[in-house]
């Protein structure tokens, strides 16, 4: 017999044997080692979130309010301002994440090649990662505002009659300045992650596809992108969650109305009337819930991808 009937079909992965439970001493040791980190998470994160939830439900003992209700949620969900802010925040996050993803993948594709001066290009590419967003926002103001460097340059080059004629890229309704700042920062951050994933995947699969007749575009579309998708997804979810919840850049570069959701929460929170505090917290809880939901969806999707 050549090989016909003797084919062994691989079994699907069987359940792994269950790990033996740790001995008590081992468990205690683990808890002691994890304790400090868990304490920080519990007190600062879970504690803070719990307090915000309580305040959003109207629990403000310092002004004599201890009854719990969903009035703050009802109020903000009935305001048009909230929905406009939500849409603006979604636009900013989606646009900056989408554009940064595209640029990051493009940059990583270039940076994984071997070329002269690659080390310097890599150095410059990563240079802005440690620079704070606030500095970036000031830089965007300095460059793109109607009294900024580019406006003056355009005026000097007689491209516009006055610096004020320069298109509004900051404090504008499309949040271009905010998106530019996020792009400046996130492209490099995502690029570094995507590049690391590409390097771990290597070029072998693409070479196999190439000998099978796949051109450059087909190799990218059918081989490389699906293989690096988990990395792209995790990097983009981080960027989306950050841009959706961050308030300092929209506060500095955004228009007054509608403002991004975190700015709206900040405005309510800093209002002299403490009765706005539950609404501020309700907006914050909604932002947190939205981001948590997003992460949940991401985990499901990435599990699906890795199972494939």
């Amino acid at each position: 017999m050549l090989f016909g009937q003797d084919i062994r079909v691989a079994k699907l992965p069987a359940n792994q044997p269950k790990a033996q439970p740790h001995a008590w001493g081992e468990r205690l040791k683990l808890m002691l080692m994890l304790g400090p980190a868990l304490a920080v998470i519990l007190f600062l994160f879970i504690g803070g979130l719990g307090l915000a939830l309580l305040q959003s439900l109207g629990y403000l003992p310092f002004i004599g309010r201890t009854d719990l209700s969903v009035e703050a949620y009802r109020t903000i969900l009935s305001r048009e301002e909230f929905y406009r802010s939500l849409l603006l925040s979604l636009w900013i996050s989606l646009a900056s994440t989408g554009l940064a993803t595209g640029l990051a993948v493009g940059s990583a594709l270039v940076l994984r090649q071997h070329f002269r001066g690659r080390r310097w290009v890599m150095f410059i590419f990563q240079l802005n990662i440690p620079i704070p967003h606030l500095v970036g926002a000031v830089g965007i103001l300095f460059l793109f505002s109607q009294s900024g460097f580019l406006a003056r340059l355009a005026y000097l080059a007689h491209l516009i009659d006055a610096p004020g004629d320069f298109p509004a890229l900051v404090f504008d309704r499309y949040a271009i300045g905010i998106i530019l700042e996020y792009l400046w920062k996130s492209t490099c951050f995502m690029g570094v992650i995507v590049l690391a994933v590409m390097q771990s995947v290597g070029e072998d699969y693409e070479q196999a596809a190439q000998t099978l007749g796949a051109n450059r575009w087909q190799r990218l579309r059918y081989v490389l992108l699906p293989l690096i998708m988990p990395g792209i997804l995790s990097a983009s979810i981080l960027v989306f969650a950050f841009t959706f919840g961050a308030f300092e850049v929209p506060l500095l570069l955004g228009q007054r109305y509608p403002s991004a959701l975190p700015v709206l929460a900040y405005r309510y929170y800093t209002d002299v009337d403490l009765n706005f505090r539950p609404e501020a917290m309700a907006v914050s809880v909604i932002i947190s819930a939205f981001v948590t939901l997003l992460i949940f969806v991401y985990v499901r999707v990435s599990r699906g991808i890795s199972r494939r």
């Binding site: 072998d204 699969y205 070479q207 196999a208 596809a209 190439q210 000998t211 099978l212 007749g213 796949a214 051109n215 059918y222 081989v223 699906p226 293989l227 991808i305 494939r308």
Partner: peptide, 19 residues
């Protein structure tokens, strides 16, 4: 170019596309 050479290579570690 490789993709038009019609010389197909099967690799040592198979390199089946996992997705």
């Amino acid at each position: 170019p490789t993709e038009k050479r019609e010389a197909v290579m099967a690799f040592q570690n198979h390199l089946l596309f996992p997705h």
